[in-house]
């Protein structure tokens, strides 16, 4: 146990409560509708793919859902050759 945790002993339940609230708020919202972040992810990648050739392997997606906001990071490595090829179309 970390020293800080020691002084906050018995303090793990509030952490559990907070984590669950964030998670369940998200899951309840998404139960009967498409996952907004998933929709964004797909549409963003589709738009980029229209202009440059992207290899699925070069797309890195990370997410962090927070209580009030979430972050979606889409990291795409675009080969320079890909830009030229698409621009020629």
């Amino acid at each position: 146990m970390k020293l800080l945790d020691f002084f906050k002993r018995g303090g793990s339940a509030p952490v559990a409560r907070e984590r669950l609230q964030v998670l369940l708020a998200y899951e309840r919202n998404n139960r009967n509708q498409p996952d907004l972040v998933a929709v964004l992810r797909e549409e963003i990648i589709a738009v980029i793919a229209k202009h440059v050739q992207v290899n699925q392997d070069d797309v890195k997606i990370t997410m962090d859902r927070g209580a009030t906001t979430s972050t979606l990071e889409i990291d795409i490595h675009i080969p320079n050759a890909g830009i030229k090829a698409a621009a020629a179309i």
């Binding site: 998670l23 992810r41 699925q56 392997d57 797309v59 997410m63």
Partner: peptide
């Protein structure tokens, strides 16, 4: 995911990978 503390970071899952909607590395 909850026990590992990664529940906020799940983007894709096992089924997505087996059905080809995501690469394993993703």
């Amino acid at each position: 995911d909850l026990v590992m503390g990664a529940e906020r970071r799940v983007v894709f899952d096992l089924v997505n990978v087996t059905q080809g909607q995501a690469k394993l590395a993703q």
